[in-house]
Simulated assay, not measured.
Amino acid sequence: MTQLKLGLPKGSLENATIELFEKAGWLIKPAARNYFPKIDDDEVACSICRPQEMSRYVESGMLDAGITGKDWTMENESEYVLVGDLVYSKVSRKPTRWVIAVAGDSDIKSLEDLEGKKVSTELVNVTRRFFEEKGINVEIEFSWGATEAKVVSGLVDAVVEVTETESTIRAHGLRIIYELMESNTQFIANKEAWNDTWKREKIENIFTLLQGALNADRIVGVKMNVAQEKLEEIVKILPSLNAPTIANLYNTDWFSVETVVSEDVVRDLIPALIKKGAEGIIEYPLNKVI
């Protein structure tokens, strides 16, 4: 049987990715100390690996496709096919940011002030290219982790670090002086796998359903019964992606009205619908919007 070798990111994105796949229709069951989780699809074989290494494995053909960060594909300068962006993270649906930060009481105020200084980061190649393009000479050292603490302890003058909420940076008393880049999650494919008709179709189907699951985030369906004389007034206050669905109820002058709306609208919408005469209102979650 032909199988698609799919890489899933280990670390902070692991749980969010598995939850996204479940919403898209695939049940993945990780096993303790096992890098090959089970998936309820005989056509897919999963491997879990670090996002920092994913693009190299995809480029080499060890994996047919994988989910990683734009930052790490840039860092590795690997060759691959970008299937598409999947904008999600461990805490939000916003891109992460790589920033340059210094100690709160540092005399360094701008990029130019880093001339001749020492910078610590995991994103060595991207950082080196950035400063070379700016014509600023810095000493860059690789960080194995706890990067922010190196500034606090005086081991380096600045760090290039990833952040979503800036909470860790603020907790260490650091100050951001520059935003280097934004990064988001990407679905990438091996070039040979992409040229294989079966694998390409499988990859595209997975991406479509994953994107559909993301599109459904914080969107719900709302369904109700409306008398004919109140229909126009109800429809006027209904938000929807395109237009509400309206169908006659059998042998009555009532209608079934259905729409899709943002979750944060519902708390105000339902009381308004009741006042306008809607009955039998149902709110239901959505797994995918495609």
Rank of each mutant, 00 (worst) to 15 (best):
N242L: 08
E258M: 13
I234S: 03
E233W: 01
V226D: 03
T245Q: 05
E233A: 09
D253K: 09
L231D: 00
E229F: 05
A213G: 06
G212V: 01
A243Q: 12
N251F: 14
Q228A: 14
E232P: 00
L249D: 11
L210T: 01
Q211T: 09
A243R: 13
F255Y: 15
L214H: 14
K223R: 12
K236N: 12
L231Y: 05
R218A: 11
V257E: 10
K236I: 12
A247T: 10
K223N: 05
V257T: 07
E233N: 11
T252C: 04
K236S: 14
T259H: 10
N242Q: 06
A213T: 02
I246R: 04
Q228W: 00
Y250L: 13
N205Q: 10
N248K: 11
A213W: 11
S256N: 10
G221V: 13
V257M: 04
N205V: 01
V220F: 09
L209M: 12
Q211V: 12
N205P: 00
I219S: 06
K236D: 15
L231C: 00
E233C: 01
F255D: 01
M224F: 04
L210K: 02
I234F: 06
P239H: 12
A213V: 03
K236P: 04
T245E: 04
I234Y: 00
D253Y: 05
L241A: 10
L249I: 15
L210R: 03
V220G: 03
P244Q: 09
T259S: 14
T245G: 02
V222L: 15
Y250C: 05
Y250Q: 13
I234E: 03
V222K: 06
T208D: 14
N248D: 09
K230A: 04
G221N: 08
W254V: 00
K230T: 01
T208G: 09
L209V: 03
T259W: 14
F255I: 02
A216R: 05
L214F: 14
Q211K: 15
L231H: 02
M224W: 04
K236G: 05
E229K: 08
V222A: 10
L241M: 12
N215S: 14
A247M: 08
T252W: 11
F255H: 14
E233V: 06
E232S: 10
V226W: 05
P239W: 13
T252I: 08
I234M: 03
S240G: 07
T259F: 09
